[in-house]
């Protein structure tokens, strides 16, 4: 009974007394405590250099805490095997601040990567990728090599790649920084839709407008510490 209750309320991301530092540099974040519930939506805010990207990379399991414990989907990542880590990462979609696309591949192939990694058949991949790319208004640029795409186009490819597999956690680092307002609000709608379907979302952003408009709680980083700023009003 007790375990049952735990499973229902268990946070999808849990950090206890986590510190982050790079090499011998001073700590960027100290004694962080953070629990994200399944299906929650947070903005991640803080000045440039506050550690937003670092915090996110810990959540997508690319960075180990220098101290403390991080659990994702209930697995303590300090003890997870390489294979377990790979399987956990498959449930996480990431939009990188600098996109990190495979520049030598086409937009289509970039978006197909997460599906191919899972061994999905090419026909199914084709259907899904084409559908999503036309939704983000990239059907014309589908076969273009990524290095020839514009910043905004790359950003949309990056987002398409992050959501193609309907991840359980979506971590997006400044996902609307390079696109015009129309596309930005369309992409935000996509994130909101995914969230309604159960995806836990964290979006790092500097945009006050975005935060004001959507009014989700904020994970705010300042002076190496983290505080949650609750949503001002309920999302209608």
């Amino acid at each position: 009974m007790d375990t049952n209750k735990n499973m229902l309320t268990e946070p999808i991301v849990d950090m206890q007394n986590v510190c982050i530092r790079y090499g011998e540099d001073p700590e960027i974040l100290s004694n962080i405590k953070l629990s994200l519930d399944k299906g929650s939506f947070h903005f991640l805010t803080g000045k440039s250099g506050a550690g937003k990207t670092s915090l996110l990379s810990m959540m997508y399991l690319a960075l180990m805490p220098s101290r403390g414990t991080v659990s994702v989907f209930g697995s303590n990542i300090g003890y997870a095997s390489r294979h377990t880590m790979a399987m956990l990462r498959r449930k996480i979609g990431v939009v990188f601040q600098d996109f990190r696309l495979l520049e030598h591949l086409s937009a289509y192939d970039n978006v197909a990567v997460p599906l191919r990694i899972r061994g999905m058949g090419e026909n199914e991949i084709k259907k899904r990728v084409k559908e999503l790319l036309s939704w983000v208004e990239l059907d014309k640029s589908m076969d273009k090599i990524c290095s020839t795409l514009s910043g905004g186009e790359k950003q949309r490819v990056a987002i398409a790649r992050a959501v193609i597999n309907r991840p359980e956690i979506l971590l997006a680092d400044e996902p609307t920084g390079n696109v015009d307002n129309d596309i930005a609000s369309k992409l935000m709608k996509l994130f909101v839709e995914l969230n309604k379907l159960g995806t836990t979302v964290v979006i790092a952003t500097h945009s006050k407008d975005l935060i004001a408009e959507y009014n989700y709680p904020q994970i705010h980083l300042e002076n190496k510490t983290l505080k949650i700023i609750p949503a001002l009003r309920r999302v209608s």
Binding site: R82, H83, M87
Partner: peptide, 13 residues
């Protein structure tokens, strides 16, 4: 760099 990206997307070794 590419390998790191693949790993983050959940690619096994």
């Amino acid at each position: 760099n590419i390998i790191e990206i693949l790993h983050i997307m959940g690619a096994t070794d």
